[in-house]
Amino acid sequence: MSEFKIHHRSGEGVSVIDLKGYLDAHTAPELENALQKLIEEKKFNIVVNCKDLSYISSAGLGVFMAYIEDVRKNRGDIKLTNMSPKVYNVFDLLGFPILYEIYKDEQDAIKKFQDARSVQS
């Protein structure tokens, strides 16, 4: 099994989480920690880049479900980007495309956040 890695970048008011490898029951707590940390730091504009994510299980999806409400309550969002067809298929099967914004490219998601901010201000 390839290992799971989380890398976190931030800039321009948007935090990007890069996922790599297998996101399953074993590694889900790592993603939880990463999201918890962002929420504690009041960083609610979150982009999750799935470019190097090779597998996601429902426990992994569950982490997004567990925190999306807190994030949206704070006028933020979790947007997902750069999914491989295999990973997208799991999201699709479980009906996530209607619950989350999914973009082809990270930049699209970042732009969306920035547009929303300029509308607000």
Partner: peptide, 28 residues
């Protein structure tokens, strides 16, 4: 996925957490 993880996790708090994630993700 859960069965494999449950086998190595021996704290019930963690089992409950993983169960929760899987429910949220799978059932939506």
């Amino acid at each position: 996925d859960l069965g494999r993880e449950f086998n190595v996790v021996l704290e019930s708090d963690k089992v409950i957490r993983l169960l929760t994630f899987s429910l949220l993700g799978q059932v939506g």
